[in-house]
Each structure stands twice: as C-alpha cells, then as structure tokens.
C-alpha cells in the first residue's frame, strides 16, 4: 500500500478528532465555569489599603527629592581596545606595552627576546638543510644525494 493514502487517512482522522476534542473541551469548560459564577458586588469609589514599608522609607517619602538619584549610578565598563594591526602588541601584557611607534617593531632585540634568534646566526645557517634524518644514532643531517647517478631506488 502506498504511503500517502495511509498518511492522509491518519491526518484526516487526527483533524476530525481534534475538532471533536476542541469543541467538547470548550463545552466542558463552559459547564465548569458556569458552576463557579459569582455575582459581583458594587464597588466603592475609594478603598483603603494598608502600606507596609521599611521605617527609613517613610522618612524619605516626606522628602521625595532625596529619595531617588536620577543620575546613573552604574556605568558599564568600556571595552579595552585591542590593537590588531600589530600582533606583537596583543601578545604582550597591558602593563608592559611600550608606546606605539614604528621603531619599536624594527628593533632587532625584540626579535631576539621573542625567540627568533640572532639575525646573523640566522643568515649563517641559511645554507643548512631544514630537515634532520632520524637514525639509530639519533638525528643526523642527511647527505645530499646524487640525483643523476642513475641507480634505481625502491621506496
């Protein structure tokens, strides 16, 4: 049997049931409500109410101008600005932050402190291989292979 006729029948039965339920529930609700009907009494133009307040508040009420401070007393903290143009500033703590200026970024010592190493030694080691080979004797610098030797290598 196809799915749509089954689902259609389910929806149809559900809709009819909902109709009957809604109308029935409404009638029952009205019967329930009609049992609890009360006759409303005439209301006076003024009524007396009792006011309970802390003692100090009563004193303040005599001087209403002192009761409320209309000026704002809670100020939301402003967000701390983050300098995203120079990432080196963001990584540093707020207290250690040096005054902004172009010479700050260009100083070689700052690179050394940041762990980049001395620029001279960096230039000297430029010719070395970036990668080490792991052998049974530890890490060794791999020897340059003759690519034109013609020997067949299996990997």
């Amino acid at each position: 049997m196809e799915l749509i006729p089954i689902l259609s029948t389910i929806i149809l039965v559900a809709t009819i049931s909902t109709f009957i339920l809604a109308i029935g529930a409404y009638i029952l609700y009205k019967i329930r409500e009609s049992k609890g009907q009360q006759v409303s009494a005439p209301v006076p133009s003024t009524i007396r109410a009792e006011l309970l307040t802390p003692a100090e508040m009563q004193m303040e009420m005599q001087q209403p101008e002192q009761k409320i401070a209309p000026q704002p007393i809670y100020i939301e903290p402003q967000p701390v600005p983050v300098y995203q143009q120079r990432p080196v500033y963001v990584q540093q703590p707020l207290q250690q932050r040096a005054p902004m200026g172009p010479q700050y970024v260009a100083q070689p010592r700052q690179y050394a402190e940041a762990g980049y190493g001395d620029p001279k030694s960096y230039q000297q080691s430029k010719g070395d291989s970036k990668f080490l080979k792991y052998t049974s004797e530890g890490y060794v610098t791999p020897a340059k292979e003759e690519k034109t030797s013609g020997a067949l290598k299996w990997k």
Binding site: P44, L52, T53
Partner: peptide, 16 residues
Amino acid sequence: INQEIKRSTLLLDNRE
C-alpha cells in the same frame, strides 16, 4: 537588614 516596618493607610482611587 532593617526589620523595622512602618504601617500606614493608603486611600486608593477605585473608580473605573
């Protein structure tokens, strides 16, 4: 903080 409560009477407008 302060448990001293003062009671007084209010006259409320009940017209509608």
